[in-house]
Design a protein around this nucleic acid. Structure first.
Lengths: 221, 221
DNA sequence: TAAATAAACGGAGGCGCCTCCGTTTTAGTG
DNA sequence: CACTAAAACGGAGGCGCCTCCGTTTATTTA
């Protein structure tokens, strides 16, 4: 019923693609038939679509018009559908990209600021991440339950990034030593589960500051 | 986001309505603010819609066009939406009606046939019921998990109907006395979980016959 | 570099969803 | 029965989804 009655779904398998491309491995495992690289123009358009979709989802939620996204990306609607046969495919890629960005920010900040400042700035960034995640709400929840790889991948990466920052700050004596990353993650949980009031962002910002004060209190250095 | 941006959803609360109407109870419990009876024309249209929807869902699955359903019912699409603000509302009502019919058939058959024959005929009817249930698949699964009342209501009624038939047949000595309704229901489970092959209906019919032979074997009368 | 082939593009077109509001029908009331 | 208010009707219209296929572009081959 309306679900691909003509078997017209080219390369659906390709659901994600790192931006940093690897050399086309000659053949590693018998299964997974090697997602061969896209033609240059295709890759370009694909990237433009993901960027446009990320903006659209952030601004208008998951129900943003796909036609509008295609238009913003400067490609035809057909191109969008060729790359992302369903809205969920697109959501997934956007979400992975978001996680990627958040983890990347952790390294970036760690290299540019004192350990405790890096942690604080990162947590502020984390608030934005949660905002996006909420924007994608329903679709994402479905995806995360249906696709357990996606869930474990992403939550693992995020908590790993947090752990690194916390450990560094603790090692540098900038925050107290008697808490660990999981405590902090737990505390940040309040951000995720808070009701969606208009001042949500501000409240969350304050929560982060408060948390940092707590963490700095009794620090060695 | 596209979800009722204008607050334009009249009487959504009314999700079900028995065909056999009760006199408008003066006031029974503080909660549940009395779903006052529909105007005659409204009730008529509502019924026509449910009938048309049942046919459409049976013939084409849950994704049947709502506009088509309205047309078949001889009403405007606006009328459909007024009565059933979402596709799921309509699915729920159709499903309840199906259950109703199945239970009604149990009484009917019990009154017109020898106890074991009634049981067999009813089980054949049960196959149709399962077919519908499968047709409604995704939507219905969501509804049944989201709305536990719906689940307990319907499964209770169906197994109740079965129990009555089995008990009568056993009491009349037409089937063996050492099985009870839950055993039979368990056996019928195979129908529900069978793969959806083209000959599914035939296979299920045969399963019912086989089951009846087993039940008759060793009967007193 | 040119030709040939495969890959990708893009948007018109058809269909379904849902809202909104002018028109019609029903159920009271005098 | 006539009148009125409230309820219900219905379908045009706007928008989004998705497919299909003629056209364009990248890549390979000679």
């Amino acid at each position: 019923m309306g679900a691909d009655p003509h078997g017209f779904k080219p390369h659906i398998a390709r659901v994600e693609k790192k931006l940093t491309e690897q050399p086309p491995q000659p053949a590693e495992k018998p299964e997974i038939p090697a997602p061969k690289p896209l033609r240059a123009d295709a890759q370009r358009n694909r990237d433009k679509l993901v960027v446009a979709a990320a903006q659209a989802f952030a601004a208008e939620g998951v129900d943003a018009s796909l036609e509008e996204i295609a238009k913003r990306a400067g490609v035809g609607i057909g191109t969008l559908y060729r790359h992302f046969p369903t809205r969920e495919h697109l959501v997934e890629v956007v979400y992975r990209r978001e996680v990627e960005g958040l983890c990347h920010a952790a390294e970036e900040l760690a290299g540019q600021h004192r350990a405790d400042v890096a942690l604080e700035l990162w947590m502020q960034r984390f608030v934005d991440y949660i905002a996006t995640k909420r924007g994608l709400a329903t679709s994402l929840r479905l995806l995360l339950t249906a696709n357990s790889t996606l869930f474990s991948d992403t939550s693992g990466r995020v908590s790993g990034a947090l752990k690194r920052l916390v450990d560094q700050a603790a090692a540098a004596g900038k925050i107290r030593a008697d808490v660990d990353a999981s405590d902090v993650l737990h505390a940040l949980g309040g951000i995720y589960s808070a009701p969606n009031t208009p001042d949500w962002r501000d409240r969350s910002g304050r929560l982060v500051k408060l948390l940092m004060d707590g963490l700095r209190f009794g620090a060695r250095g």
